[in-house]
Design a protein around this nucleic acid. Structure first.
Length: 574
RNA sequence: GCGCCCGUAGCUCAGUCGGAUAGAGCAUCAGCCUUCUAAGCUGAGGGUCGCUGGUUCGAUUCCAGCCGGGCGCACCA
């Protein structure tokens, strides 16, 4: 478990005390529980609190309070580390860490810079995150936007904790959806050419289909006389696919989503990978024929029922390609596969985990991140979308209206499993009500500080060369404590695949910064002004200015690192 | 009917490998700009953590059963 600098030292000290106590025979538990250090809710409970004494109570057959006492007696570095060590009521161990230790955090942040918060727990592990994977049959809608933001954030989080993480888009460029796309565009093309045709049942009704048909008309007219209707429809499919996938790529790029790898479903069919994947299942006796179809024995691995992979008509089902796709991913040697799914596909999870097991892997080699629907609001009123008529709010419209940063931040504000309310008016508001700007503004404010400092001839101090012992105010230490918890936050967010925790943290850190900024002066007033009596009258010495600038630099660094994990920009001006 | 997810302040949501008096933002009300960006800050009110049991020294957190909302139960993708 990698933690902040202070947390790590305290944990080590506590572990040392436990081990010493065991050697002396005061304690006997063989394996200590995980030592978690929480920042207590109330300031009088110290900086860090441990519940280890209480969790040891049952295995030690001792009162928690007595265990806590034993731990405290065995704390070897008590004087160097703590100002106060208290045992409270049932058996809380409340620790107040020496300011000098907290101040070290600032040096650590400065020396690590953009690497602060990054850890190595995933080192040597390769993970593939599949996300978006929208059918190339139309533009991306808002829900895809959320999936994209979440997927990319998970990639970046896992990268931050040392995994070799790759984000991949699975393109469903084969099968029924593609045929319907071709037929729909063909029908619109016919209409544009003045012929009345019956629009395909289950076809795509969206107006973008007509748009695509219009764009392709000239090209199609040129070849129309030489091709049969079937060939023409096939041409429609190919051209429309190319165009729509291009749109998707453009949209993702505008949204600031970088897909590292694109994987084509059609390629699986072309290279016979589907056959090979199914043959492998056959070899393992996990496929059987019934009613003229081929079935995968998914029920053997906890799925509700067996699933058809090859239909009576000889066509593969979607699942067949998906089996082949996941078989391919496993074959590429990934230690962990993550699929980002729309929540309406949750029923698919047991099926895919069955696939993992069918190929001899533990089912949790595949983890699924579910992303719930987005409810778009405008001034509190829901913006209705209809999938039936194909008219919905596209991701493009949202980012054009509120900007990519705001959209990403909103998409990442809540646990992805819960419905998200996204108010377009609020998201583009430039006020404190808008959490995106609130966080970005904190960063910009610090940048502004550097500009003013430089204008007043104050050089930016380095943490190493600055006396930080003057940072003893509770607001100053409060900021440092928050900064110190950042590495642990990143790690837990990454391992839980929950980027919303980062968003939340950034809001808290920004709040602390704004409060501090408002309450305490950092730079001395401009020389031509009278000394102020209000906020600046707290003995703002050059030493204090320097130390606070170091603190501000550290806050800026962490804001930037956190925003970077979410792929949101950290502006210097606002 | 079976399965999965959700149910925390008026609203939107954090928090839950069990911990001390449950948090934030919005909204409401009352304040703060001749000062380093007011895109900011301070204060106040606001809660049976869906309900009922169980496990525990201790449950919003774990377990069971209900209630309410969403989604899924295809030889569709």
């Amino acid at each position: 478990m990698s933690q902040g600098l202070v947390q790590e030292r305290v944990t080590t000290a506590l572990l040392g005390a436990l081990n010493d106590a065991r050697e002396k025979g005061q304690l006997k538990t063989a394996a200590w529980p995980a030592l978690s250090l929480d920042a207590p809710k109330r300031p009088e409970w110290g900086d860090l609190a441990s519940t280890v004494a209480m969790s040891l109570a049952s295995s030690e057959h001792k009162a928690p309070h007595d265990i806590a006492k034993i731990i405290v007696e065995n704390l070897s570095q008590r004087e160097q580390l703590f100002d106060r060590v208290e045992i409270v009521r049932p058996g809380f161990l409340n620790l107040t860490v020496k300011p000098a230790l907290w101040q070290e955090v600032l040096r650590e942040i400065e020396s690590q810079g953009v690497r602060y918060g990054r850890t190595a727990i995933g080192t040597g592990q390769r993970v593939l995150i599949e996300y978006v994977s929208a059918n190339p049959t139309g533009p991306l809608h808002v829900g895809h936007g959320r999936g994209a933001a979440v997927g990319q954030a998970v990639v970046r989080l896992l990268d931050a904790v040392g995994y070799d993480a790759v984000g991949e888009y699975y393109v469903n460029d084969a099968g029924r959806q593609m045929k319907l796309l071709g037929a729909s565009v063909y029908a619109r093309y016919q209409e544009l050419s003045g012929r009345t045709v019956e629009f395909p049942e289950d076809g795509y009704h969206g107006s973008y289909i007509t748009t695509v048909a219009q764009q392709l008309k000239e090209e199609l007219d040129r070849v129309a006389s030489e091709l049969t209707p079937v060939e023409l429809e096939t041409r429609c499919r190919a051209l429309a696919y190319e165009r729509l996938l291009g749109l998707i790529r453009d949209d993702l790029q505008s949204f600031g989503i970088e897909i590292q790898s694109w994987f084509s479903e059609a390629s699986l069919l072309e290279t016979k990978a589907v056959e090979r994947a199914l043959d492998e299942l056959k070899t393992r006796d996990l496929l059987f024929q019934e009613d003229g179809a081929w079935w995968f024995r998914a029920s053997l691995y906890g799925d509700e029922k067996d699933r058809v992979v090859k239909k009576q008509d000889g066509e593969y089902t979607y699942l067949a390609s998906d089996i082949a796709y996941h078989y391919d991913k496993l074959g590429r040697g990934y230690d962990l596969l993550i699929d980002v799914f729309g929540a309406d596909h949750h029923g698919y999870i047991p099926r895919m985990q069955a696939v993992m097991q069918a190929y001899g892997h533990p089912k949790d080699r595949l983890q699924v991140v579910l992303v719930q629907l987005v409810k778009l609001l405008r001034d509190g009123v829901e913006v209705k979308m209809s999938k039936r008529t194909g008219e919905f709010i596209t991701m493009r419209e949202v980012i054009d209206e509120v900007g990519a940063d705001a959209a990403k931040f909103y998409f990442l504000m809540r646990d992805s499993r819960t419905h998200l309310e996204f108010d377009l008016e609020l998201a583009k508001q430039r006020s404190a009500d808008n959490p995106v700007y609130y966080v970005q503004y904190a960063h910009a404010r610090i940048c502004s500080l550097w500009r003013v400092a430089s204008a007043r001839g104050i050089a930016r101090p380095s943490a190493a060369g600055t006396d930080l012992t003057v940072l003893t105010d509770s607001d100053e230490l409060g900021l440092i404590k928050k900064l110190s918890s950042y590495p642990e936050l990143i790690q837990s967010s990454a391992l839980a695949f929950e980027p919303h925790r980062v968003t939340y943290y950034l809001q808290q850190l920004a709040a602390l910064l704004h409060t501090f900024y408002n309450k305490h002066r950092i730079l001395p007033p401009a020389t031509d002004q009278e000394p102020e009596e209000s906020i600046s009258a707290e003995g703002l010495t050059p030493e204090r200015t320097a130390a606070r600038l170091v603190l501000m630099g550290a806050v800026q660094q962490v804001l930037r690192n956190g925003l970077d994990v979410l792929a949101i920009s950290a502006p210097e001006h606002m």
